[in-house]
Amino acid sequence: KVLVLALYDYQEKSPREVTMKKGDILTLLNSTNKDWWKVEVNGRQGFVPAAYVKVL
């Protein structure tokens, strides 16, 4: 399983997205889209901007 680090806070803007806080460790589920990556955080799955996270 691939983990990513949240570099910035992100507030979800649609039901398909998830909120994350800077420093959160998320599970990367899909990174085929260069702009939006699907992650799991706190038991929820959704998209975050790829530029806001870094693969650990």
Score class of each variant (00 low, 15 high):
15 P>K: 10
37 W>L: 06
56 L>I: 13
32 T>K: 13
7 L>E: 05
45 Q>P: 06
24 D>V: 04
19 T>G: 11
9 D>I: 02
1 K>P: 15
55 V>E: 09
20 M>F: 10
20 M>P: 00
21 K>R: 14
44 R>G: 05
42 N>T: 08
3 L>V: 13
46 G>T: 02
46 G>Y: 03
50 A>R: 12
47 F>E: 05
5 L>P: 00
35 D>C: 10
16 R>I: 15
17 E>Q: 10
18 V>I: 13
45 Q>H: 11
4 V>N: 01
27 T>G: 07
13 K>N: 11
19 T>R: 07
41 V>L: 13
56 L>H: 08
55 V>S: 05
39 V>W: 00
43 G>I: 05
52 Y>G: 10
21 K>M: 12
9 D>Q: 03
7 L>I: 12
26 L>Y: 11
23 G>D: 07
6 A>P: 01
27 T>E: 14
29 L>P: 00
16 R>T: 15
56 L>T: 06
33 N>S: 10
39 V>Q: 00
54 K>R: 14
53 V>N: 01
23 G>A: 03
11 Q>S: 15
37 W>H: 03
13 K>H: 14
5 L>R: 09
48 V>L: 02
11 Q>G: 09
48 V>N: 00
27 T>V: 15
3 L>I: 10
13 K>V: 12
33 N>T: 07
10 Y>F: 08
32 T>F: 11
14 S>F: 06
2 V>R: 10
25 I>Y: 07
35 D>T: 12
4 V>P: 00
19 T>C: 05
2 V>T: 15
36 W>N: 02
23 G>L: 03
30 N>M: 08
11 Q>T: 15
38 K>Q: 15
16 R>P: 06
24 D>R: 02
29 L>G: 02
16 R>D: 15
19 T>L: 03
51 A>T: 14
18 V>L: 14
14 S>K: 06
45 Q>R: 12
34 K>Y: 07
1 K>S: 14
28 L>D: 00
33 N>I: 07
35 D>Q: 11
14 S>Q: 08
17 E>L: 06
8 Y>Q: 12
8 Y>S: 10
29 L>S: 03
7 L>D: 02
5 L>M: 15
20 M>V: 12
30 N>I: 10
10 Y>D: 00
9 D>Y: 04
19 T>D: 04
50 A>L: 02
21 K>W: 10
33 N>H: 15
55 V>Y: 11
41 V>W: 08
4 V>S: 04
44 R>A: 09
7 L>A: 04
20 M>C: 06
37 W>E: 01
15 P>S: 15
36 W>G: 01
31 S>L: 07
5 L>N: 03
19 T>N: 07
43 G>L: 07
11 Q>F: 13
41 V>G: 11
7 L>M: 12
33 N>D: 15
20 M>H: 01
32 T>P: 04
45 Q>Y: 09
12 E>F: 05
51 A>K: 13
1 K>Q: 15
44 R>N: 08
5 L>G: 03
44 R>E: 07
2 V>N: 08
44 R>P: 01
25 I>V: 14
45 Q>E: 14
21 K>C: 09
15 P>W: 11
22 K>C: 07
25 I>L: 08
17 E>D: 06
17 E>Y: 05
24 D>W: 10
55 V>H: 08
47 F>H: 06
45 Q>F: 11
10 Y>V: 01
37 W>R: 02
27 T>M: 13
42 N>A: 15
43 G>D: 10
32 T>S: 12
36 W>Q: 04
47 F>M: 09
42 N>I: 06
54 K>V: 15
2 V>A: 11
1 K>T: 13
2 V>F: 11
4 V>M: 07
2 V>P: 13
36 W>H: 04
12 E>K: 14
17 E>P: 04
15 P>Y: 12
38 K>Y: 10
48 V>I: 12
1 K>F: 13
17 E>R: 04
53 V>L: 12
50 A>G: 06
8 Y>R: 11
18 V>Q: 03
12 E>S: 12
49 P>S: 02
14 S>E: 07
53 V>G: 01
45 Q>T: 14
1 K>M: 12
24 D>I: 04
52 Y>M: 13
12 E>A: 14
49 P>M: 03
29 L>F: 04
6 A>R: 00
28 L>F: 03
33 N>Y: 08
5 L>F: 09
15 P>T: 10
37 W>D: 01
6 A>Q: 01
34 K>I: 11
12 E>G: 13
52 Y>Q: 06
50 A>C: 06
9 D>K: 03
22 K>L: 06
22 K>G: 06
1 K>I: 13
14 S>P: 04
37 W>N: 02
21 K>L: 10
31 S>F: 11
39 V>P: 00
43 G>M: 08
4 V>K: 00
33 N>P: 05
19 T>F: 05
27 T>A: 09
14 S>R: 09
55 V>G: 05
18 V>N: 05
38 K>S: 10
37 W>F: 08
15 P>R: 11
47 F>G: 01
48 V>M: 01
54 K>A: 15
37 W>S: 03
3 L>F: 12
20 M>S: 01
32 T>H: 15
56 L>G: 03
46 G>S: 02
9 D>S: 08
30 N>K: 07
27 T>D: 06
10 Y>A: 01
4 V>I: 11
24 D>G: 03
51 A>F: 11
40 E>C: 10
13 K>P: 05
38 K>A: 08
42 N>L: 13
33 N>L: 11
20 M>D: 00
39 V>T: 01
38 K>T: 07
6 A>T: 04
23 G>E: 03
43 G>P: 02
10 Y>T: 01
54 K>G: 12
47 F>D: 05
10 Y>H: 05
31 S>K: 12
44 R>L: 09
21 K>T: 12
25 I>D: 01
33 N>A: 12
35 D>H: 15
14 S>M: 08
46 G>N: 01
53 V>E: 00
3 L>M: 15
56 L>A: 05
22 K>N: 05
9 D>E: 06
18 V>P: 01
55 V>R: 07
7 L>R: 04
21 K>G: 05
20 M>K: 00
21 K>D: 04
38 K>F: 15
36 W>A: 03
26 L>D: 00
22 K>E: 10
31 S>H: 12
7 L>H: 03
44 R>K: 15
4 V>F: 05
3 L>N: 07
23 G>S: 03
7 L>Y: 04
46 G>P: 00
30 N>Q: 13
35 D>S: 10
6 A>W: 01
51 A>D: 13
48 V>E: 00
22 K>P: 03
25 I>P: 02
34 K>M: 11
52 Y>E: 02
5 L>T: 09
30 N>S: 14
33 N>C: 08
31 S>C: 13
11 Q>E: 15
48 V>Q: 00
31 S>E: 09
28 L>K: 02
30 N>F: 07
42 N>P: 09
27 T>R: 09
40 E>L: 07
29 L>A: 03
10 Y>I: 01
2 V>S: 09
55 V>D: 05
19 T>M: 04
53 V>C: 10
8 Y>A: 13
30 N>L: 13
40 E>S: 07
6 A>C: 08
51 A>I: 11
5 L>K: 10
30 N>Y: 08
41 V>Y: 12
9 D>W: 03
14 S>N: 13
21 K>Y: 11
30 N>P: 03
53 V>T: 05
45 Q>V: 13
50 A>M: 05
50 A>T: 06
9 D>G: 06
46 G>R: 02
52 Y>W: 08
44 R>I: 10
35 D>I: 11
18 V>S: 03
36 W>M: 07
19 T>V: 03
20 M>A: 02
22 K>Q: 15
35 D>V: 10
6 A>K: 00
12 E>M: 11
38 K>I: 14
43 G>C: 11
56 L>E: 05
47 F>I: 08
11 Q>P: 07
37 W>Y: 12
53 V>F: 05
30 N>A: 12
22 K>A: 15
38 K>M: 15
1 K>N: 15
10 Y>S: 01
41 V>F: 11
45 Q>I: 12
48 V>A: 04
11 Q>K: 12
24 D>H: 04
20 M>I: 14
46 G>Q: 02
